[in-house]
Design a protein around this nucleic acid. Structure first.
Length: 753
RNA sequence: UGGGGUAUCGCCAAGUGGUAAGGCAUCAGCUUUUGGUGCUGACAUUCGGGGGUUCGAAUCCCUCUACCCCAUCCA
C-alpha cells in the first residue's frame, strides 16, 4: 500500500470521523454491455479497496437500465474480473433491474409533489427546446399537465399502451439552468424491448440519472465513486435525493479521473472495433487492455492491483506510461517464477571434443530469489544456442560468443568457437566448438573468465514449442484508431526449443525463459502435443538499448511565452473608483483593480474606511482575505462587519499583532463573528517582540535540529525559513516574525557546529 | 461562447502559509554464472504564465493561458 492516501480516502476518513456516515459502503456499478478492461480494474481497486480498508463493504451492481445493449455474458465477465482480482462483493450480485418497481414508486412520488411530468414532445423537439450552452432552453407545454393527468399517463406508459418515443417522464427543474444536465432531465423512456433479466415485464425503463442515485440509496451506499465525466450529473443526483426527502443516511457522489495508458485504447467503442474488425483475435487477445486479455497473456492479479495502487487516484486527466505496468508485472514475477532455458532462434553448436552425454542439476531460481527447486538438465555433444548469441564481427562491448571470445553455457561448461560453417549464401549454419572440461558449473577450476552465460538446449532432448511474442498493439502513444495499429504486434515463433523440464515438470504455468522474458502457457491453445507460450513481458534489456542508441537530439529549452488575453474593460464607475484608489488613497494598481471591479468589495472597503483611516492595510486584507470569503459565501452570510475588519487592521497598525496572527484572527471571525479584540484577549495573541523572550526559543530550536544547522552552514540558505517557522510554531505564532527573522539570521551566522 | 473540472520533473503523484515526498523512466557506479535482480548515487533553486499580499507563497488574492467534460429517449 502506498503511504500517502488519496483524496477519496481523505474524504472517507473525514466522513467517518465527523459521523456523516457510520459505515463505509461503496459499490462497483458497471453497465453489463462490454468486457471489463484495466480501467474497470482501477474502479474495482478503489471501491473494494476503500471498503476493505475502512471496514465497510462493497457491492457489485449491474447497472442494467438499458435493455437494448446489455447481455448476461457481460455480467459473467464482470463477475469474473472482480473475483480474479481477489475481491468479494457483499451478498449477491445486485441489479438495478431488481429495483425497477421501487424506482417506479419514487417516480410516482415525484409526480405527486409536482416535480415530474409526462412530456409528449418528439425527440427532435426535446433537443431543440433544450437550448444550447449559451442560450436558455424553453419548457414544453406539456409541463403544465395536472398531477392527475401525469399519474394516469405514466401508468399507461408502464402498461405498454404507447409506442416507443411517444412520451417520456421528465423532472421539472429549470430549462435555463447553466448546467445543461439540469434542463428538465429525462427520467423514464418507453422501450418495448426484451430485458435480459426483467424479461418483458416493463415497457418503461429509468434513465441513468434517476436510477443510479436511487439504487445507491436503496443499497445504503455511503460513497458513490465514479469517473470525472459524471461531475455534471452530480447536481441531478443530489436533486432527486433531496426532492424525494428520503430518510437518511443518503449517498454522496465523488469523482476521480479515468485511467489512461499510452500505446493502447480504452474506450468500449474502439475496443469493439478492434475485435469486430478482426484486428485482434477476440476479447481475450493478449494485446488488448481487457482483463481477459491481460489474464490470458499471463499477468497476475497482484501485479494489476499493485499498478492501480502505484498510479494513484486524483482528478487530473492523465496518461500513464505502459512501462509502469510492465514494471509491476516484472516486479511480481521476479520472485515467484522458475527460470528455464528456451532458444527462440536456434543455431546448432557441435562440441567437437565432447562425447556421450550427462545430466546436470540446475536450480530453478537464482541465488537472490529465496525459493528452492531444481531440475535435471541433459547435456550432450550437439546443442542449440540463440543465433543472437554468436557474432562473427562483434560490436564493441559484445559479451557473448565470438571467434575469439569464450562464453559459458548456463549451468554447464565454457565453450570456445573453433570453426564457423556457412551455406552457399554465406549464412552461418553451424558452429564447431570446444568445451573446457574443468569449467563445469559449480566446480570450475579452469580459471577462464567469461563475460556472459547464455541459454542453450541439448539437441536430442529439446522440445519444439510455439512461442507468441507480443508487442504493443499501437505504434503511437495516443492512438486514434485502427490506422495507428502496429503491424508487428504479434510475432509467432513456431520452432522454438525448450529444455525438457519445461514440458514434463510444469512446476508453474509461468516461467522466466532466461535472458528473454516471462512466459505463460496459453490457457486455451496449449496442448501436450503442441505447447504454446505467450510472452508476458520482456526482461529489461540494457544491452539492446545501449547498442541501438541513436544520437539523442538535445532537448530544446522551450521558453514559456507569456500570452495575455484580452482584459474586460472597466465600466465608468469602476474606472472612477480605480482612479480614486490610485490617486487619493495611494493603493497599488493590483489592489485598486481588484477592489474597483467588485461591487461588494468596494462597498465593504468604503465602509471599513469610514471606521479607520488606514487605506492600504485595509485594502490588503479586504482584497485578499475578505475576497476569499465572498467567493464562497454571499455578502449577507458573512459573520463579520467592515467595522470589525477595521478594528483588526488597527491592531496591525499599532503592532499589537502581526500579520500572521491577523490571519488567524480573521479565520476565527469568519466562523464565530466574534470581535477581534476579544479574540486577542481570550487567546492571549499579543505579539512578542522582546528579543530576550525570543532568543531562548531560538537556541532551543537550533539545538533540536543539528542536521539542519549543518546543512545551513553548508550553504542551504533556504533553511532560514525552516528555522523561522519552527520558532514561530514554538511561540504559537505570537513572536514578531520580523524580529525572529533578524535574530535567527544572526544566531545562525554565529552558531558553532 | 454559458457552466463544471484540471494544471507540481519525460510519465504518474504527495504536499493547502515555514526544508518541493515517493514510484516509473533515464543516467552513472558496485554486485551478479540472466547485459535480469539487488544495492548506491545523480535527476524540479521551483510548482501553466504574469502581477499582488506576507518576514516567508506550490499553497491566499487578482488576472491571463492551455486541456478535459456537458446540448443521447447511452451509462
Amino acid at each position: 500500500m502506498n503511504e500517502s492516501k488519496n483524496f477519496l480516502r481523505t474524504i472517507v476518513e473525514e466522513d467517518l470521523k465527523s459521523g456523516k456516515c457510520k459505515e463505509v459502503v461503496t459499490r462497483f456499478p458497471p453497465e453489463p454491455n462490454g468486457f471489463p478492461h484495466i480501467g474497470h480494474a482501477k474502479s474495482i481497486f478503489i471501491n473494494f479497496g476503500i471498503a476493505r480498508d475502512y471496514n465497510g463493504h462493497c457491492n457489485l451492481r449491474m447497472d442494467d437500465t438499458n435493455p437494448t445493449t446489455e447481455d448476461t455474458k457481460y455480467v459473467e465477465a464482470l463477475k469474473d474480473a472482480v473475483e480474479w482480482l481477489g475481491y468479494e462483493w457483499d451478498g449477491n450480485v445486485r441489479f438495478t433491474s431488481d429495483y425497477f418497481s421501487k424506482i417506479y414508486d419514487y417516480a410516482i412520488e415525484l409526480i405527486k409533489i409536482g416535480k415530474a411530468y409526462v412530456d409528449s414532445l418528439t425527440e427532435e423537439e426535446i433537443r431543440e427546446y433544450r437550448g444550447t450552452v449559451i442560450e436558455a432552453g424553453k419548457r414544453s407545454k406539456y409541463a403544465q399537465r395536472s398531477v392527475q393527468e401525469n399519474l394516469d399517463l405514466f401508468e399507461r406508459m408502464k402498461n405498454g399502451e404507447f409506442q416507443d418515443g411517444e412520451h417520456v417522464l421528465r423532472a421539472k427543474i429549470d430549462m435555463s439552468a447553466s448546467n445543461m444536465k439540469m434542463r428538465d432531465p429525462l427520467l423514464y423512456r418507453i422501450r418495448h424491448t426484451h430485458h435480459f433479466r426483467a424479461g418483458d415485464e416493463w415497457a418503461v425503463y429509468p434513465m441513468y440519472d434517476f436510477a443510479h442515485c436511487l439504487s445507491d440509496y436503496i443499497e445504503g451506499v455511503s460513497h458513490s465513486l465514479c469517473t470525472l465525466e459524471f461531475e455534471n450529473n452530480r447536481d441531478i443526483y443530489n436533486w432527486v435525493l433531496e426532492e424525494l426527502n428520503l430518510e437518511p443516511p443518503r449517498p454522496y457522489q465523488y469523482e476521480f479521473a479515468r485511467l489512461g495508458i499510452n500505446y493502447t485504447v480504452m474506450s468500449k467503442r474502439k475496443l469493439l472495433e478492434l475485435v469486430e474488425g478482426d484486428f485482434v483475435k477476440g476479447w481475450d487477445d493478449p494485446r488488448l487492455p481487457t482483463i481477459a486479455g491481460y489474464r490470458r497473456k499471463g499477468y497476475t492479479p497482484e501485479s494489476i492491483l499493485n499498478f492501480c495502487d502505484l498510479v494513484g487516484v486524483a482528478k487530473a486527466n492523465s496518461m500513464v506510461d505502459v512501462s509502469q505496468l510492465e514494471f509491476c508485472i516484472r516486479d511480481d514475477l521476479n520472485t515467484k517464477v522458475p527460470r528455464v532455458m528456451c532458444v527462440l532462434d536456434p543455431l546448432k553448436v557441435t562440441i567437437a571434443n565432447y562425447d556421450g552425454s550427462e545430466e546436470l542439476t540446475a536450480s530453478y531460481y537464482p541465488d537472490d530469489v529465496p525459493k528452492e527447486g531444481s531440475r535435471v538438465l541433459p547435456f550432450s555433444r550437439e546443442i542449440y544456442i540463440e543465433r543472437d548469441d554468436f557474432n562473427e564481427n562483434p560490436p564493441k562491448g559484445y559479451f557473448r560468443l565470438t571467434p575469439t571470445q569464450s562464453v559459458r553455457l548456463k549451468h554447464a561448461y565454457i565453450i570456445s568457437c573453433k570453426e564457423i560453417i556457412k551455406d552457399a549464401n554465406g549464412n552461418i549454419t553451424e558452429i564447431i566448438a570446444e568445451y573446457h572440461p574443468t569449467s563445469k558449473s559449480g566446480s570450475d577450476t579452469s580459471g577462464i573468465k567469461v563475460k556472459s552465460a547464455i541459454q542453450w538446449v541439448s539437441a536430442k532432448e529439446a522440445k519444439k514449442v510455439e512461442v507468441r511474442l507480443y508487442d504493443r498493439l499501437f505504434s503511437c502513444e495516443a492512438p486514434q484508431g485502427v490506422e495507428d495499429i502496429n503491424p508487428d504486434s504479434l510475432k509467432v515463433v513456431k520452432n522454438a526449443l525448450v529444455e525438457p523440464a519445461v514440458i514434463t515438470d510444469k512446476p508453474d504455468e509461468r516461467f522466466q525463459f532466461e535472458r528473454q522474458g516471462y512466459f505463460y502457457a496459453d490457457p486455451i491453445d496449449y496442448t501436450d502435443e503442441k505447447p504454446v507460450f505467450n510472452k508476458i513481458v520482456g526482461l529489461k534489456d540494457s544491452w539492446s538499448k545501449k547498442s541501438q542508441k541513436t544520437k539523442t537530439t538535445p532537448k530544446q529549452q522551450v521558453k514559456k511565452e507569456q500570452i495575455d488575453g484580452e482584459v474586460v474593460p472597466m465600466t465608468e464607475t469602476q474606472k472612477a473608483l480605480y482612479d480614486n484608489y490610485i490617486n487619493e488613497l495611494k493603493l497599488n494598481s493590483e489592489l485598486s483593480n481588484t477592489l474597483a471591479r467588485d461591487e461588494q468589495l468596494s462597498a465593504f472597503y468604503k465602509e471599513a474606511l469610514n471606521a479607520l483611516e488606514s487605506p492600504v492595510n485595509l485594502a490588503n486584507i479586504i482584497a485578499n482575505e475578505v475576497a476569499r470569503e465572498l467567493k464562497e459565501h454571499q455578502l449577507s452570510e458573512l459573520k463579520f462587519t467592515p467595522k470589525q475588519i477595521a478594528e483588526l487592521v488597527k491592531m496591525i497598525d499599532d503592532a499589537t499583532i502581526s500579520n500572521k496572527i491577523a490571519k488567524q484572527i480573521f479565520e476565527e471571525m469568519t466562523k464565530s463573528g466574534e470581535n477581534p479584540k476579544k479574540i486577542v484577549e481570550d487567546k492571549g495573541l499579543i505579539q512578542i517582540s522582546d528579543p530576550a523572550k525570543i532568543s531562548p526559543i531560538i537556541d532551543e530550536v537550533i539545538a533540536k535540529n543539528p542536521d539542519n544547522l549543518v546543512k545551513f552552514k553548508a550553504g542551504n540558505t533556504k533553511l532560514l525559513g525552516f528555522f523561522v517557522g519552527q520558532v514561530l510554531k514554538a511561540t504559537g505564532g505570537k513572536a514578531n516574525p520580523k524580529v525572529v527573522n533578524e535574530l535567527v539570521s544572526l544566531r545562525l551566522q554565529s552558531a558553532e557546529l
